[in-house]
Simulated scan of single mutants.
Amino acid sequence: MNASQRDEQAQNLGLLFLRVAGGLFLLWVHGLPKLLHFSEQLQLIEDPFRLGPHLTLLLAIFAEVLCPLLIVAGVLARLACLPILFVLLVALLLVHPQWSVAEGQFGWLLLILFSTVLIAGPGRLAFGARLPGVLRYA
């Protein structure tokens, strides 16, 4: 294996780690609590677009449960980043605009992480890497 192949392998391992760690972290900290405690979360969720708490919570669950699972698997990973980034931007800019960078650091770090996956893609160590054509890059 030459140096170029080692570099590519290291990049793919790095993207795998980023996808899996970030996706599972978002799922564990935000997604599963919303899914498992749906009724309680209905009382707590902010509704900045006035869609109603039920629809707002369902959209948040989509972004914080289904999308991270797709990213972890590397299937439609770039596309799956978009709802997550939207929810993060809404939370940071509309729901909690009073937060300092220190108070919102978790959200900002997730924004950086999923923006990186959006830009770089899932890498070759992804189930999506075996999909045909446009699906591979979505």
Rank of each mutant, 00 (worst) to 15 (best):
L35T: 00
F114T: 02
L125H: 11
F127Q: 09
R78V: 06
V75Q: 04
L88W: 00
V72D: 04
L93T: 13
L111V: 04
G121S: 11
F17S: 15
F114V: 00
E103G: 10
I84V: 14
T56L: 04
E40N: 13
L82F: 12
L82H: 10
R19V: 00
R78I: 06
E46Q: 14
L35E: 03
F86M: 12
L131R: 08
F106C: 06
L118K: 01
V29W: 12
Q43S: 12
P97R: 11
A126M: 10
Q98V: 14
V29I: 13
A102Y: 12
L32C: 09
E103T: 09
K34A: 00
G74W: 02
V75E: 02
L82G: 06
L59E: 11
A63E: 07
G104D: 09
L111M: 15
V72T: 02
V95G: 13
P68V: 01
L36R: 11
L57S: 08
L26T: 04
L59T: 12
H54N: 14
L44R: 13
H54M: 15
P83I: 02
L18Y: 01
V20F: 01
G52L: 08
L76P: 03
L85W: 06
P33Q: 06
V75Y: 04
L135K: 09
L26H: 03
L59H: 03
P53W: 10
A102G: 13
E46I: 09
V20L: 03
L93I: 12
W108V: 14
H30F: 06
L15H: 05
S39E: 14
I112A: 15
H30G: 00
L111G: 08
P68W: 02
Q41V: 08
L93D: 13
H37G: 13
I71W: 04
H37I: 00
A126I: 11
I84P: 05
G23F: 00
G22Q: 01
R19C: 02
I112G: 13
V101C: 01
F38S: 08
R130P: 05
E46C: 10
L27Y: 08
A129I: 06
Q43H: 15
P97I: 08
F17K: 06
P122M: 08
P97K: 13
L42Y: 08
V65N: 07
P68Q: 04
E46Y: 11
H96Q: 15
P83W: 06
T116P: 04
F49I: 04
G31S: 06
A126G: 11
Q98G: 13
R124T: 15
V101G: 03
F38Y: 14
I84F: 03
V117R: 02
L94G: 11
L110N: 02
L85E: 03
L55I: 13
I112E: 07
Q43G: 14
G133D: 11
G31N: 05
F127R: 12
L88F: 03
L18S: 05
F38I: 08
V87M: 15
F114Y: 04
L24C: 12
F38V: 05
